[in-house]
């Protein structure tokens, strides 16, 4: 391996070479060992936490429907029995601001002609305005199942604990249930515009106590 003169019987070089390789080997293992000291702290190891268990889940809280519009309710204030017209038509004098966009439904599909302060299920059962969801779910039965499971509609509060549910008309206008577009909040700043306050003192916005 070396350029030197013919080897002598007692080759010093071989001994030194062996020693060097040996020391290098030990050094390499030592370095790897040093790096491995904490290897049990892998990426999916958390610390030891005290044990916590889930208590029994409290009952959900139903968020009540908004009270009916006081300008109109109770309906019986205006709707007297004598002059009721059950014919589907364009509304002109009253409720002309009402947008009716709910399939082919007409007022009396849901409201009762005789008892104008009640809603009428398909089996002619009358229910109050506060139980409107029973009326909605006659047609939208699949939504009821999803709502019960928490997948349709909004829930707030606790994923484990008291949670607020919302009945249909909290979010949907029953006369025009489709979601109306709303104004979005502002878009994020593109990276070119993220300059921070490069020239500001880092402590500038800190709140100093008097």
């Amino acid at each position: 391996m070396e350029t030197e003169a013919p080897r002598e019987p007692h080759d010093d070089g071989a001994r030194i070479r062996t020693t060097t390789w040996f020391v290098l080997g030990i050094a390499a293992m030592a370095v790897l060992g040093l790096f491995s000291v904490r290897c049990e702290l892998g990426p999916n190891v958390a610390r030891e936490y005290p044990s916590r268990t889930l208590p029994p889940e409290p009952q959900p809280v139903l968020m009540s429907a908004p009270p009916p519009d006081e300008d109109y309710y109770p309906c019986s204030d205006c709707h007297e029995l004598e002059d009721r017209n059950p014919q589907p038509r364009e509304l002109e004098d009253e409720h002309d601001d009402l947008e009716l966009a709910h399939g082919d439904l007409w007022c009396l599909s849901c409201h009762d002609l005789a008892d104008s302060d009640s809603l009428k299920l398909s089996d002619e059962t009358l229910v109050g305005f506060d139980e409107s969801w029973r009326l909605c779910t006659q047609c939208h039965g699949n939504k009821l199942a999803e709502w019960r499971a928490g997948v349709h509609g909004k829930r707030t509060g606790y994923w484990w604990g008291p949670k607020e549910y919302r009945t249909c008309i909290v979010c949907h206008n029953p006369h025009s249930p489709a979601w109306k577009p709303i104004e979005p909040l502002p878009p994020p700043r593109p990276p070119q515009q993220i300059a921070g306050r490069v020239r500001a003192e880092p402590s500038e916005v800190r709140h100093e106590e008097p």
Binding site: G150, K154, R155, T156, G157, Y158, W159, C171, I182
Partner: peptide, 25 residues
């Protein structure tokens, strides 16, 4: 035990959250 803030902020209820180990979640 609370819902994340985004779940509570979503106006259309598109965000769902729960325990993957609970078959009733």
């Amino acid at each position: 035990g609370r819902y994340p803030a985004c779940v509570e902020a979503c106006p259309v209820g598109a965000r769902k959250f729960g325990n993957l180990l609970d078959p009733n979640s």
